[in-house]
Structure formats: structure tokens, C-alpha cells
Design a protein around this nucleic acid. Structure first.
Lengths: 192, 192
DNA sequence: ACCGTGATGACACCTGGTGTCATCGCTTAG
DNA sequence: CTAAGCGATGACACCAGGTGTCATCACGGT
């Protein structure tokens, strides 16, 4: 496949996580990350458009999973049910294994106290929401409801992800996601 | 008050809007913006932490208005009602006059086709949502509901703002905000 | 007339990010 | 077996966003 060391992006991510953990996000230079991965600053930017992006790569994949699952839901399913399907599909598809969990924790720790990264995280969530909303409209859900259902789905996903990466958590991501969605739907009744 | 030309921030914003309109966001240098306002690049960054921030200044004020209005709502008011109060208060306080409307249009036009600015807009909305959610929790709204109500309020606000700045709109912001919130609350019923 | 203060200017500096060309190793055609 | 082609990388120069630091300058108060 390639004559250089394989898994370039992953190596860059690991190098970045190490350095961020040691010295904090903005004390670390892109050149240093690349160097630790045995590469060059220029090459880093060939794989990630941004310094931030190294921590958020692969989210486009999730968007596709969500959208596909919503599109594949039976026509009779309510918006909430379709969103539930999407969450389940995401839990199944995007390997939420233990090693992903460890990485998730480290990423969250870095993102937590850094406004720039928090901002990027919001963008990723918005992208995901937009994908869900689009898929919902595609199946005939009218407009305020489609956006709202997508927003609730995004909220459920990030809540579940937060709980899943919380220290001491033992539960499965799929369970947490279903539970979070359930809670949110129940809360809609208490708004009026 | 000051011995230099007054309204520094506003002058910088106007200069920025002119230049962005002429040549697009990233073809314009901060130094150029400052120069057109009769200032220096260094001074620009004393007033705005960011190049983006010049287009989003004053949002912290809105957050305070929202939070205060929610806190001041009668104890008997439901979360949705409290959010409605906040929207009304915002419409009343943050002068949504015609000149703000013109500026809003120009800002939206620049933000529209710029990912960076869209990202910043998301951060501002998230900040506003967080302020609302905090104020709601303060008055005893439990946690999934507080976040959800805040999210709906934010959605209503941005929807109303979008419609308000749409070309040809004649309606008041307060009306649009109340209407958007109403639509969203009605949509919650159609999710299940 | 003097001094303190706050906003600004001047200037050097770092780093994120990009354009461009050379390099180098593998693959494939001849 | 050799040469051409290609894909990922390195090397290097360059720009612009953003910051630290010190000088300046006008005003208010003493």
C-alpha cells in the first residue's frame, strides 16, 4: 500500500495526544507533533486541515452513518424512532470499543479546557445535526420538527458520549445513548 | 470620555463590514480594517480578541438579558413560558431597530459563506444556550429539561433572527421570536 | 505647571497555514 | 532489466493572525 510508515493519521493523533497531555494544547507546536510522528509540519497539514482537526477526524463518517440509518428506517417510524435507530446504528458501526473509549477520554480532557477546541466540537455536532435533519426532511418530516428532532438526537449523542467516557463508567454506549434519548423525549412533555 | 475619535469598536466594525463586502472575509487583512478605521492592527486586537470577533461582539450582553429575564419570570411560569419571557426581553432590550437590522443583514451575508465565521456563530449560540440553561436550573428546572428548553430557546432566537434579517421582511422581531418559539413547542408534540 | 492614567503607535516575534518544487520509492509498461 | 509514471513526503519561502513590550500623547486632577 505505502512504502512509508503506515497509519500516518493515527500516528499523528497519538503523537498529538501525548504532547497535549504533557504540555497542554497551545504550548505544543504542529511542527513538534509532526516531528514526534517522524514527519514534517507540511505533511501534518496534508492530513489535517487544521491543528484542531487532528482531534476530531472521522466525524464525517458518523454523519453518514446517522443519515443512512434514518433513511433506512421504516416509513412508519416516528421522527423520534428514526433518531433512535440512528443512535443505535452509530453505536454499532463506529467501533465503540475500549480503545476508542480510552482515546475518547484523552481527547475530552484536552478539549475540556480549551475554548478553541470546544468551538470545533460545536461545529462537528452541528454538522452531524444537519445531516440528521436533512435525512429526516428527506422522509417527509416537516421543517421545525426535523430540525428539532435532529437537535435532540445530537444532544442525546453527546450526552451519551460524555457519560460513556466518564471515569468509572462500565455501561455500553448503545445503552447510554438509548437512555439519553429517552430522557430527552420525556423532558419534552415537561416544557409546557 | 476619550480624546481620540469615539466609538472605536463601532468604527472598526463598520470598516470591517465595508471591506468584507468589497473583497470577502479572508482577502481582507486586519491591518487593512484598522487602517480604514484610522487605527493600527495592534489596536484592533485590543478591542477584539479575534478577527472573527468583530462580527459577533455584544453577544455577552444578550446572554445577560436572557438569563436575567428567566430569573425574573414568576415562579409559576413553565420552562417554556420563562424562555418566552427571555425572548421578549431580548427583543425589547437589545435595540432591534432598523439600523441594527441593516447591520444584521450585512453580517449574515458575510458569515453565510464562511466556515470559520459559522463556527464562531455556533460558539455564540452555545454560550447563549448555556446562560439560559443555567438560569433555568437556578429556578429548579431539572437537568435534561433545562438544557432542552434552552436549546429550543436558542433555536427560536436564531430562527427569528434569520427571518428578521431576510430581505423583504417587515415584521417585528418580537413577533417573529414568539412565533418561532410557538412553532417549535408545537413540533415537540409531533416527535413521538 | 506637574503628574498619573488610559488608549494608542511602533516594532519585533512566534506560529498556524499555504504554495511550490524537488525527492524518493514503488508500480507498471516496454 | 530499464525507464517512465505516480503518490506521499521533505525543504523552503512566504503571508497573516495574534502577542509582548515599550514609548507616546492627550487629558483630568492636584
Amino acid at each position: 500500500m505505502s512504502r512509508w510508515e503506515p497509519n500516518t493519521r493515527e500516528r499523528l493523533l497519538d503523537a498529538a495526544l501525548e504532547l497535549f497531555g504533557e504540555r497542554g494544547y497551545d504550548s505544543v507546536t504542529v511542527a513538534e507533533i509532526a516531528e514526534r510522528a517522524g514527519l514534517t509540519k507540511r505533511t501534518f497539514f496534508r492530513h489535517f486541515t487544521d491543528k484542531r482537526e487532528v482531534l476530531f477526524a472521522g466525524q464525517e463518517f458518523l454523519s453518514r452513518v446517522f443519515a443512512d440509518a434514518i433513511a433506512a428506517a421504516p416509513g412508519s417510524a416516528s421522527p423520534a424512532a428514526a433518531v433512535g435507530r440512528a443512535l443505535a446504528a452509530a453505536a454499532a458501526a463506529a467501533g465503540f470499543g475500549p480503545e476508542r473509549q480510552a482515546r475518547g477520554r484523552r481527547i475530552r480532557a484536552v478539549v475540556a479546557d480549551h475554548p478553541d477546541l470546544h468551538e470545533r466540537e460545536l461545529l462537528k455536532r452541528a454538522t452531524l445535526n444537519a445531516a440528521m435533519a436533512g435525512a429526516l426532511r428527506e422522509r417527509g418530516v416537516p421543517d421545525p420538527a426535523a430540525g428539532l428532532a435532529a437537535e435532540i438526537g445530537g444532544l442525546a449523542f453527546s450526552t451519551a458520549f460524555r457519560r460513556w467516557t466518564e471515569p468509572g463508567n462500565e455501561r455500553e454506549f448503545a445503552t447510554l445513548a438509548a437512555e439519553a434519548l429517552e430522557e430527552l423525549l420525556a423532558a419534552t412533555a415537561a416544557l409546557g
